[in-house]
Design a protein around this nucleic acid. Sequence first.
DNA 1: GTCTATACGGTGATAGAC
DNA 2: GTCTATCACCGTATAGAC
Lengths: 211, 211
Amino acid sequence: MTAKKIEKDTENKILEAAKKVFVLKGLDGARMQEIADEAGINKALLHYYFRSKDQLFMMIFKVEIGNFFPRLIPILLSKEMTFDQKIYHFVENYIDLFLRNPFLPTFIIREINRNPQMVAQFFIEAGIESNNFKQIIAGFAGELGISPKEAFHLIINTVSACIFPFAGRPIIEQVFFDGNTAEYNHFLEERKKFVAEFVVNSIKGRMINTK
Amino acid sequence: MTAKKIEKDTENKILEAAKKVFVLKGLDGARMQEIADEAGINKALLHYYFRSKDQLFMMIFKVEIGNFFPRLIPILLSKEMTFDQKIYHFVENYIDLFLRNPFLPTFIIREINRNPQMVAQFFIEAGIESNNFKQIIAGFAGELGISPKEAFHLIINTVSACIFPFAGRPIIEQVFFDGNTAEYNHFLEERKKFVAEFVVNSIKGRMINTK
DNA sequence: GTCTATACGGTGATAGAC
DNA sequence: GTCTATCACCGTATAGAC
């Protein structure tokens, strides 16, 4: 095993540990000592690799916000799916992402509100254009015969229904499931189907209204 | 002005300042010095009135989570409104609550995930029974001819659509509104109507499906 | 590259005068 | 009740040996 390989290993161990701790506790709640323990090294090495807590945090944040938001644009932009198919696909994939990363929504919500400037900076650096989103909205509006404004609210409603049950889990699980974690996981799994149906039905119901 | 009155004044000034700082920055991010500055007093007085940071925080948390969740149960339990009316009423009032307290959703999400135990403790202390919620679910299921499970998903979808645009504001505002705060406020105001319509339409669309 | 030891600043909390 | 001064501790960051 080369020195280079060892170096990469340590760096990855740190990043993995930092992700775990930062995602769970946030920048303010995380402790460098805890990250070091989690990585099986000592504090000094963290600074050797990443200089400061803030810099280490930014490494994690940039990756995680990249996972959170723009990953699913291709689904919504696809030319080969109907609106219904896109919604089913999107909801299933998005909820699945959170089932694999249950604390991602809370992490993102916590940190973007702690420092909203990071968001603007990220979208500039990553070169993400709002054109993609406007294209999705326009596409939905055209296909469904609704206004872009209404299409946008629809997208927000869909995204909300995917994310909130993860961010608000402690309350919902306590109130409605008496703290039963297994049942709550089942509920989240169910939502892949129910949320998509809900959205699709809403459009159907709207069409009848205007006839 | 009596001594008692002065005492109450100071206590209220502290609570007001603590609310402001804790809601914005969370327990981990808040500093006692900042709360003291905001209240126009010094740190020692905070401890004189509330012993510790944790105790002061709990004062705020209990009030705010009380605002957040159970306040709107009466609307949903009312016998004098149809399902549609309840939804319109609920959504309007809930979004309105957040327009007046824009950082409440983020605060609650941040803190319940930091310490989920607080949630269980709160609901026990406050004597809130999950029966109310089960009654609401059963009521919806009966009136709409759907399963309790589906009625529950519907409620979660509705709540999600009210809350998430506040918790996820920095991202949505940046991506879709180029950081324009006034436009985003307008969007939030609009949602009172759009979210309620969305939910009601979904039920209409579902009915047609099963016919 | 990795460790131990330590410097340094900040933060919650207390003591004690008024 | 309210203040100033101060303590004790903790957390980030660095120095320096290996």
